[in-house]
């Protein structure tokens, strides 16, 4: 009996420890966000760090974003096209594909791609710097790592995500048009007329606002996980996995609640 109590004790101690760690992480991330935002005022003196990050995000995610967008456009048009055909409504494909892309698929797919392609790389890079004492070295050179590393990545993420989302929306809609024409005999002109009739500025704007917040989440989570990595090089892989998982969960949860809020 006594032994069992001890086990229970240990379980609760562990649980408490994990909870404390979690809330500490959340607090630290908020502080990191605040500091990154405040440091944006020195952006013009640090363009040599910000612009390469933006270029890197664009270049690294463009190929995979194009591929994903076009195939999702294809599939979306195919699946809905078959259903619409039963009611002879194929000409509404344009509206359905473009609105679907703009409201949900564009922002969420882009976030997923960027987490895998960019977020993971950010954590791996910064975590490697942490375990090899490079972050400490920056500090002793009176260089604030948040200005040197976090702020440029933060700015690059929040500006490049919306750009990527617009691109993904456009390519996806284009993919839909190709399928609409090939399988359902909807002419391009009719398809895009339909897009213009139904897709509103609000749909686009809401998707873009989401993507900016996704950019905040991805950059802050990735940088925080990198900066707090301690121990040996083995910890880098673990930190990267943790960062990717946490980014995914945060993006999904935020996306659900904000969508629900906007529906009310």
């Amino acid at each position: 009996m006594k032994k069992k109590t001890k086990k229970v004790d240990r379980f609760f101690i562990l649980l408490g420890q994990k909870l404390l760690d979690f809330f500490q992480s959340v607090g630290e991330m908020l502080l990191l966000l605040v500091e990154a935002v405040l440091l944006c005022k020195v952006v013009f003196r640090n363009l040599d760090k910000v612009l390469p990050q933006m270029g890197k995000i664009g270049a690294d995610s463009l190929p995979i974003a194009s591929l994903t967008a076009i195939f999702v456009g294809f599939v979306l048009a195919l699946q809905t096209g078959v259903a619409l055909q039963q009611f002879g409504q194929e000409e509404d494909l344009g509206a359905i594909v473009s609105i679907g892309m703009a409201r949900e698929l564009g922002p969420v797919l882009t976030a997923i791609l960027v987490i895998g392609r960019i977020g993971a790389a950010i954590t791996a890079e910064i975590a490697t710097m942490s375990v090899s004492e490079e972050i400490d070295a920056l500090r002793t050179l009176s260089i604030n790592p948040v200005r040197y590393l976090v702020m440029p990545r933060f700015l690059a993420c929040i500006t490049m995500l919306p750009v990527l989302v617009i691109y993904v929306d456009f390519i996806g809609t284009l993919g839909g048009a190709a399928v609409a024409k090939a399988y359902f005999k909807v002419p391009f002109l009719a398809y895009f007329d339909n897009v213009a009739d139904y897709l509103t500025f609000e749909d686009m704007a809401k998707g873009l606002v989401k993507s900016v917040v996704f950019g905040v989440i991805i950059s802050i989570v990735s940088c925080h996980k990198g900066l707090t990595t301690t121990g040996g090089p083995g910890e880098v892989g673990l930190a990267t996995t943790n960062s990717v998982v946490l980014s995914f969960v945060s993006v999904y949860v935020f996306n659900y609640f904000v969508t629900r809020l906007w529906l009310e």
Binding site: M129, S132, E133, E134, A137, R139, T140, L141, S142
Partner: peptide
């Protein structure tokens, strides 16, 4: 930062930015 300006440190593993 002000205090740190008086210091420099050479780290065990060099800690150069790769």
């Amino acid at each position: 930062e002000e205090v740190r300006r008086r210091f420099a440190m050479v780290f065990q593993g060099s800690a150069l930015l790769n």
